[in-house]
Structure formats: C-alpha cells, structure tokens
Amino acid sequence: MVADGLRVLFCGINPGLMTAATGHHFARPGNRFWPVLHLSGFTPRLLRPDEQGELPAYGLGITNVVARATARADELTPEEYVEGGRLLTEKVTRLRPKWLAVVGVTAYRAAFGDRTARVGPQQRAIGDTRVWVLPNPSGLNAHWTTATMAEEFARLRETSAPAS
C-alpha cells in the first residue's frame, strides 16, 4: 500500500506468515498496529488489515524493510536487513513521503547501520523525507503497551499533520 506523496509511509520489518497468507499488513491477531493507528488518531476508526486499501485516503501507506516472510523477524539475516534498507531508500526516494516511520528500532538499526538509534525522530533524512522510528507493535514487544505505543504514534501524527 504505497503511493506518491504520502504524509507517512509506515515500514514494518517483514511480512509475518499471516500477512503472507492473507496479503494484508500486520494481519496477525495479536499485532497491535491497527488498534494503535486508530488510538493515536491517524484513522477515524479501527481499520481491519483487509481494509489497508483505505490508508492512502488518510495520506498513509505501508511497506516493509524486507520482503521475505518469516514466522519471526529474528529469522532474517543481517544481509537481508542491509539490502532491505537499500531498497527502502530507493522506494522512499521515488515516492517522497513526508515521513518514513520504521516500526521497530532493531530493524531500523540493522537496515541503516545506526546502532544508537532510539524511538522517535531521527537525524537521518532520505531526500526531503524525515525518518521516525516507532515501537514494534508485535505482541512479542512487551516493553510497550498499546497505550504507550499510541502516545508515540500520536507524536508522529501531530508532527506530520499538514499546517492549517
């Protein structure tokens, strides 16, 4: 779900097996992406994964760092992350979203070779596209609750909102 000139292009790590089977991003029932997207104010209602086609109407899109589906992100190799970062940079250069939001600090660090990155806005830009690292909404990420994730997503939403 990508298009030119998005406000925010969300970037997951890689497709999980449920996403690969359904063709819908963040499709695993325990994944908190869709609830957090709504709770943070990016969408006016809770979207289901099969409604991802509605995202461009809100200026949003979704892609992944690595295209290969796995049961767990820790099955990916360092080389896959680096190549994924290179391909993602090409995609962002072509599509020119206002913000690239990488969902998962570990994936961002691996893909872009930035071992000190933390959740939040990054110094790195890709052309005119700013980069923000968000917490991974996987149910395996117990460090972040749905509420604290929604707060971080909302920080990005407020920053990326069009000037009125």
Rank of each mutant, 00 (worst) to 15 (best):
A21N: 09
V105E: 13
T70Q: 14
H24D: 15
E90F: 09
L100G: 06
G53D: 15
G127T: 01
Y81T: 04
W34F: 04
A125S: 14
L9E: 04
A125D: 09
P29W: 10
T146G: 03
A73N: 06
G113I: 09
L9G: 10
F112Q: 07
G16C: 11
A57C: 00
G41R: 12
E75R: 08
N141E: 14
M149D: 10
A154H: 13
E54S: 12
V2M: 14
G61K: 09
T70Y: 10
A67E: 15
E75P: 03
A57M: 04
P97I: 06
R109P: 01
G113E: 03
A111V: 06
A101W: 00
T129Y: 01
L88H: 03
F33H: 02
D4A: 14
N31F: 01
G41P: 13
R157E: 11
R7G: 05
A163H: 13
K98A: 15
Q122E: 11
G120T: 08
I62N: 15
E80R: 00
E80Y: 03
G23L: 04
L100Q: 05
K91W: 00
V36D: 13
P97R: 04
Y108T: 02
G104D: 09
E79Y: 00
E158K: 12
P78F: 03
A101V: 08
A67L: 14
M18E: 15
S138F: 04
L100F: 09
V8N: 01
L76D: 06
R86I: 09
T129L: 11
A20W: 01
L87H: 14
P121S: 11
S160T: 07
F10H: 04
R7Y: 01
G104K: 08
P56N: 11
N31P: 05
M1S: 12
Q123R: 14
T63E: 07
A69T: 01
A163I: 12
G85D: 09
A27Y: 07
R45H: 07
A57Y: 04
G12E: 03
P56K: 02
L47F: 13
G113A: 08
V103G: 09
T148K: 09
E90C: 08
F26K: 00
V82E: 14
D74F: 08
G61F: 03
R86S: 14
N136M: 03
H24Q: 11
G120V: 02
G12N: 07
N141I: 02
K98N: 10
E75K: 00
T116L: 14
T129H: 04
G30A: 14
N136E: 08
A21P: 02
L100H: 06
G16E: 10
F112K: 10
Q52K: 01
R115D: 13
R109N: 05
A125C: 13
G41K: 12
S138Q: 01
V82M: 07
F33K: 03
T93K: 12
M18G: 07
E80D: 09
E80S: 06
T148P: 02
L134A: 01
A111H: 05
S40M: 05
H143A: 15
M18T: 15
R155H: 11
N64M: 06
A101Y: 05
L55T: 06
G104N: 09
R72Q: 13
R45E: 14
L87I: 05
D114Y: 00
